[in-house]
């Protein structure tokens, strides 16, 4: 056939009693126009024991984040043709592996919930929309688009060491999404909650998050802006 592509897949089945191992797989696939998820699904069609998550297959739902050749990416928008062989696919680092490419996302979502990710506005509700100028709305660009895939947070060494106490880049990006929203009134409480040596200040500007984000967002910049707010209200 000559179209074979080589893959190395992280395999782990907790019921087998075996430790995790890397499985070499050769797949007959033409990489042109195909994404890594297409290949993983084709592999699963041959060997249905391979466990992975997937949903929208167009990079907007955040299900299929995996570590590909050392980088966290969404399998569905990672072109096969760009990848060096053997393509090494592992579960996201820094989270407990449930099986194969599936990790336990709860530590990630717990931190997301911890920033109280909802708009707070205690003014009486107008009978129409609250007004927001296009400029005020533009401040949410680069923030609200986050898909909670965890590529950034699980690429962050600070989160690896402190998953219970450090919010992580995704959570902090979302924290800033509400701080930056002209309609949100809870800025003081939000800043209070983040002004903590662990929750925010574990960020060391390693910038893995920026490199990892498949949506091109910049959590490090958001973290910087939160810090600016903290400094501003202090000095």
């Amino acid at each position: 056939m000559g179209m074979g592509m080589k893959f190395r897949l992280y395999r782990y089945d907790p019921e087998s009693g075996e430790p995790p191992f890397m499985q070499d797989v050769e797949l007959d696939i033409d990489p042109a126009g195909k994404m890594l998820l297409d290949a993983l699904i084709a592999i699963k069609a041959q060997d249905e024991t391979l466990a992975l998550r997937r949903s929208c297959r167009e990079g907007v739902c955040g299900s299929d984040a995996v570590n590909v050749n050392g980088r966290n990416r969404l399998a569905c928008i990672t072109p096969l043709g760009e990848l060096k062989e053997p393509v090494e696919v592992r579960p996201l680092p820094g989270l407990p592996v449930i099986r194969d490419l599936v990790v336990d996302m709860e530590p990630f979502f717990r931190q997301y919930r911890s920033i109280k990710p909802w708009l707070v506005n205690d003014d009486p509700e107008p009978e129409v929309e609250r007004l927001q100028s296009p400029e005020q709305r533009a401040r949410l660009d680069g923030l609200y688009e986050c898909i909670l895939c965890a590529c950034c947070t699980t690429a962050c060494p600070s989160f690896w060491w402190n998953p219970e106490t450090f919010v992580g880049p995704a959570g902090l990006l979302q924290a800033y999404r509400f701080i930056a929203d002209s309609r949100d009134e809870a800025i003081s409480a939000r800043l209070d909650h983040l002004e903590d040596p662990y929750r925010l200040y574990r960020c060391r500007g390693i910038l893995n998050c920026v490199d990892a984000c498949p949506k091109g967002l910049n959590p490090a910049e958001a973290i910087g802006r939160i810090r600016t707010q903290l400094v501003k209200r202090r000095v």
Partner: peptide, 20 residues
């Protein structure tokens, strides 16, 4: 239903007059 979503925080794009 749309106003309610806006009150919940949905980041609608805006017109120059600040409306959805």
């Amino acid at each position: 239903a749309v106003y309610e979503l806006e009150h919940m925080g949905l980041p609608f794009s805006r017109l120059d007059n600040g409306r959805i």
